[in-house]
Design a protein around this nucleic acid. Structure first.
Lengths: 264, 264
DNA sequence: CCCTCGTTTTGATCTGCGTCAAAGTCCTGC
DNA sequence: GCAGGACTTTGACGCAGATCAAAACGAGGG
């Protein structure tokens, strides 16, 4: 176990059988039920029996599309549901009182959003779609009720919350003790892992977010992000062109994260 | 709601009736049961009925003392129990592979530790006592079982996990977008809040951790922590002498956190 | 009581990344 | 297809905080 990256936002395991590009289209064609959703392994109903799955199906209040740039929820609003991302890509932002905002995380299909709101019954961050997305709305009360009857659902829900905490520890490590190069390398590796876990290529993908959003997430300025990416490219670690990214050497990136002098 | 500090690691509400200094002694004299524990409001069994409380009492496998410097658990070890701190003060540390470590949090009475381990069934951080402490051992399986029968326990457990996530967001904000002065001010205010919530003075307390540990938590070097504290003292915001700290102006500290230019 | 070692303070210097600026590129809507 | 705005890249420079160094302080053990 190597805490810095391997556990940092690792949400599931890979589906090597999935094709790379047509996935979203396929998913959209499916009917709404969890029981037929290919994200099961990553999402809430992981490891449930067929009967239990049916109950979870009934849990989903509705599916809801979220257009690029739209808010799924806003900070301060009362919590009623958690949201499982069915397709698309989102960010969550914590807000300063002075209006500045910081990206707290990037979320893709199979991820569950809204977990931070359970404690206060109010959302503490904004959720914004970075591309047209679709989410499943899961009323918290119903989820709690059902998980009282289905131990494995309860367990899985706890695991998901716990993994979010673990992910946050990873981010804290990153923000607290890594230099710019290490942070960016860790970020790219994390994206790579998560795409891989969803059946996409681990070495070639689109960055759905701007340099500024990456910077905000990593505690860096956009110029630094851009410069560092250029630097990686010059070293032959990656090939970037605008938002298209190809990782040329996963190993060298990993080395950068772990072996390089961290500044403390 | 002001996300940066007010929600950042705020775990409960104040007990103004509690005397300031003799609290630990009193707690130690009590018998082991939750039902007679003065930490109820902060700890797991918050808001349970007398009958439910009794069930939770039976949940506690045992109380366990942890001497200063000893580990409560170590990274990599299998999870069996969560731990509620009954008295004392602890830190949790995430580990780099290169041996460096980062403090992920400081924990005091009423706090629940080990939540990050549920996802993998392995502890992801070390827990070390910063002073002689005592914890209540709560087997996770039993807690899950009981919370299936007691909805309010289930709810409270979810709230606790969620608040940990919210706290982490606060730390991310701090690490990602605050300057040294703001970080330290936020840190002191957070300690102040938490002591207040436990019936201690919000303006005068002992720092149980070294400057290095503070620095590790805040993503700063110990020299910077020391310098910044001296600076605060020169400004008349606080009075520090070694580990004894007195806050002279909570308001000015708060202002420092929110109004000052954050570096982004 | 003194010695020792861990901790803290303070100073001087260095550097990674932020800031400011300007040019270039891509995307979108008309 | 063109115009305008958003995003990205690259350069020059400055500063907050890291690093190096050394002295002072405090707590615990013999």
């Amino acid at each position: 176990m190597s805490p810095s990256i391997q556990y940092f936002q690792f949400h599931g395991f890979a589906h090597p059988s999935m094709p790379t590009t047509l996935r979203i289209v396929e998913v959209d064609k499916l009917k709404t039920a969890c029981s037929t959703c290919s994200l099961q392994e990553l999402c809430l109903p992981a490891g449930l029996s067929a009967i239990e799955l049916k109950s979870v199906d009934e849990l989903i209040a509705r599916r809801r599309p979220v257009k690029r740039g739209d808010y799924l929820f806003r900070s301060g609003v009362a919590l009623h549901s958690l949201y499982a991302i069915r397709s698309g890509f989102m960010k969550s932002c914590v807000l300063h009182e002075d209006g500045r905002e910081q990206v707290a995380g990037f979320h893709m299909m199979g991820d569950l959003m809204g977990l931070d709101a359970i404690g206060t019954n109010q959302h503490l961050c904004d959720a914004v779609a970075l591309e047209d997305s679709e989410v499943c709305e899961i009323p918290l009360k119903d989820l709690e009720g059902l998980s009282r009857n289905i131990p494995s659902l309860q367990q899985h829900f706890h695991r998901i919350m716990s993994r979010e905490i673990a992910r946050d520890y990873g981010v804290m490590l990153l923000l607290g003790s890594m230099r710019a190069e290490e942070r960016l390398a860790a970020f790219l590796l994390n994206l790579s892992q998560r795409f891989a876990a969803r059946g996409y290529s681990p070495t070639e993908f689109h960055l759905r977010m701007t340099r500024e959003e990456i910077g905000s997430y990593l505690g860096l300025k956009l110029e630094t992000v851009s410069r560092t990416l250029s630097h990686f490219q010059a070293q032959g670690l990656i090939a970037v062109q605008n938002k298209h990214l190809r990782i040329l050497s996963l190993d060298n990136l990993k080395e950068l994260v772990s072996h390089h002098s961290c500044r403390s």
